[in-house]
């Protein structure tokens, strides 16, 4: 690539909003409205709702609601998003591998990608000898609802497929959190995370392969989280999350 000559050429080197131009000290109108459009889409993504019947048809799944009755409460009360609503129960399936599909902070990426990922995981896990429970769809849910669901099932491990907080340039990102011996009260340091699963990020096939590797390593170790060291080069673990924000 040739060296940049013009200010706007900087855009060749990054997806960041460089080389936008300048009118006085402000943004040119087009760049300003590009930003407003991206923010509008991100805001709508936060308030997007899972199409549960469609997902259920694709996954053959059970559905549970969290204890957060609506989106606003969900945003204000993370504790409620970690619990199942009163009165819900699941048929126990001791020793199984549980897959939870949760809306998290953005439903759209989960809606689009979770069916294919759940399918890939299920066949991979069965091939590795696991009894895989039918996926559970969880609405208004945080990552830790997997602990409640996993405990109700008596699962040996749970993988929570969940929508990540939308950014301006990644609206549709999904993450997977893997927890060994799930039960309420597990901390985030006891999970392993694969993030940025989206078109243009990590593909469904790559994510599935990484998770299957982690599941095998977690079974050998008898634990997930910081004790489970990543020996695959580019897999992000919780302990590798950036400090500072």
């Amino acid at each position: 690539m040739s060296a940049p000559v013009l200010w706007r050429d900087l855009r060749r080197h990054t997806a960041a909003r460089v080389g936008l131009g300048r009118v006085g000290n402000g943004l040119p109108t087009a760049a300003h409205l590009d930003f407003q459009e991206a923010h509008a889409q991100a805001r709508d993504a936060v308030w997007s709702v899972l199409d549960v019947p469609a997902l259920q048809a694709a996954l053959g799944a059970e559905v549970v609601a969290s204890a957060a009755p609506d989106r606003r409460t969900y945003l204000l009360r993370p504790d409620l998003g970690r619990r199942m609503a009163e009165g819900l129960s699941l048929a126990p399936r001791p020793g199984c591998f549980a897959i939870v599909v949760a809306d998290g902070l953005c439903a759209t990426g989960v809606q689009a990608q979770a069916p294919a990922l759940a399918q890939a995981l299920t066949s991979g896990l069965r091939a590795a000898g696991w009894d895989v429970a039918p996926p559970v769809i969880a609405t208004q849910a945080r990552v830790a609802i997997g602990d409640a669901i996993g405990a109700a099932l008596g699962a040996a491990m749970v993988a929570v497929l969940i929508g990540e907080r939308p950014g301006l340039s990644a609206l549709d990102s999904m993450g997977i959190y893997l927890t060994h011996a799930p039960r309420p009260g597990r901390s985030d340091a006891e999970r392993n995370c694969i993030s940025n699963i989206r078109p243009g990020g990590l593909s469904v096939a790559e994510a599935s392969a990484k998770l299957l590797w982690l599941v095998q390593a977690a079974r050998d170790l008898g634990a997930t989280g910081v004790a489970l060291k990543d020996e695959q080069p580019v897999l992000p673990l919780l302990e590798d999350q950036p400090e500072g924000r």
């Binding site: 990054t14 997806a15 960041a16 909003r17 460089v18 936008l20 300048r22 000290n25 402000g26 943004l27 760049a31 930003f35 991206a38 923010h39 990540e164 907080r165 939308p166 950014g167 301006l168 340039s169 990644a170 950036p242 924000r245």
Partner: peptide, 18 residues
């Protein structure tokens, strides 16, 4: 100062160079 107020790594909006 973040280019165009959009931090593409941390996925949040801060103040821009402008």
């Amino acid at each position: 100062g973040v280019p165009g107020a959009d931090d593409t790594m941390l996925a949040y909006q801060s103040t821009s160079f402008h």
